[in-house]
């Protein structure tokens, strides 16, 4: 990703400064400094790199810098592994960033464009992490529609840093200590900005649809859920296969549905409640485990609806097959519950 951006900058097609850093910690720190200086900033990372910059994530979020970052979801050491799962970003849900999860390469591109618009909205001002499955989306090829500059200009206005930038006429301190009497007020404002982001996401998706003809659906992407008795909740690139399995189960009379979570922060609690309120039984499939507890996505979903079954799969790049997904629906029909490993 950064290699291609380096090409764009060196051949002059992108008017940007490319900063070579010695670490992920410095990458996000430099992005934060540049954002503070009043320019649009982007960086990308993955896996241990995301964890290495974890400290800076909360600085960037609390400082309300609208940085956009793409994270390639990859497994965490030990054991060492270069393939995909979602333990990296899910372990950092509480860092104060918007977190979205793409299903395919087109959605990564589209989400990234919208991410700038959403993060930079004056009522939001929160950094945005676009997540995509390592290997499945990062090391495979897909044909994508590449937008023209004219199209981008219609959804992404020129950068306006607002008040949160260095101003020599009106100098300020941009980061500070806030004691117990002030601390919560900053975090509450941050939380409320995250909740307000739903309105901004909605508007961004409407504009995006008008320009590109592609419609995105906010926090969740529900498939055959209206009358579904058994719903599988998941996220990322495995969702397509889940939908295929749901289709074939429908043919044999099983009322199966799939709910793909597109955003985990802000958490789409109302959308989840609405879609799953009439389901008989709900399972969550995720490439993650909070050791000694359950999958983090499951824990979040269960805070909204009584999901029973949590299936942990795809860790360290393990394949998830159609037969295994069909097996999850069978487990739901059999009334199984708890944490199960594929």
């Amino acid at each position: 990703m950064v290699e291609r951006l380096a090409e764009f900058v060196e051949d002059g097609s992108l008017d940007a400064e490319f900063i070579h850093v010695e670490s992920e910690h410095s990458a996000l720190s430099a992005a934060m400094g540049a954002s503070l200086a009043g320019v649009r900033t982007f960086t990308a990372t993955s896996s241990q790199g995301l964890l290495y910059m974890a400290e800076v994530l909360t600085y960037a979020a609390g400082g309300r810098f609208p940085i956009v970052m793409i994270n390639a979801n990859r497994s965490l050491a030990l054991p060492w592994n270069i393939y995909g799962d979602q333990r990296d970003s899910l372990s950092l849900l509480d860092s104060g960033w918007i977190q979205a999860y793409a299903e395919n390469a087109q959605e990564v591109l589209d989400l990234t464009l919208m991410a700038f618009r959403i993060a930079e909205d004056t009522a939001v001002r929160v950094p945005f992490m676009v997540n995509l499955d390592g290997f499945h989306l990062t090391h495979t090829y897909e044909v994508v529609d590449v937008p023209t500059k004219e199209q981008i200009d219609k959804i992404l206005p020129d950068y306006d840093p607002g008040e949160n930038q260095i101003d020599f006429e009106n100098p300020r301190s941009f980061g500070f200590t806030a004691g117990p009497e002030w601390n919560a007020s900053f975090h509450k404002a941050h939380h409320e900005a995250m909740l307000h982001a739903w309105n901004v996401i909605d508007r961004a998706e409407n504009t995006f649809h008008a320009v590109f003809g592609r419609r995105y659906s906010g926090g969740v992407d529900a498939y055959r859920c209206d009358d579904a008795e058994y719903v599988l909740v998941t996220l990322g690139s495995v969702s397509g296969l889940c939908r295929q399995v749901a289709d074939s189960l429908r043919e044999s009379g099983v009322k199966a549905g799939v709910l793909r979570l597109r955003y985990l922060r802000p958490f789409p609690d109302e959308a989840i409640r609405k879609v799953l309120s009439s389901a008989k039984s709900v399972a969550v499939l995720e490439k993650d485990i909070s050791f000694g507890g359950a999958g983090t996505v499951f824990t979040n979903v269960r805070s909204i609806v009584p999901a029973k079954l949590n299936v942990i799969g795809g860790l360290g790049g393990a394949d998830i097959s159609a037969a295994q997904i069909a097996g999850i629906f069978e487990s739901l029909q059999a009334g199984e519950s708890g944490v199960k490993w594929l």
Partner: peptide, 11 residues
């Protein structure tokens, strides 16, 4: 130093 780098580049 890395935050300084970013500020300098941004300005």
């Amino acid at each position: 130093a890395s935050v300084m780098t970013g500020i300098e580049a941004g300005l």
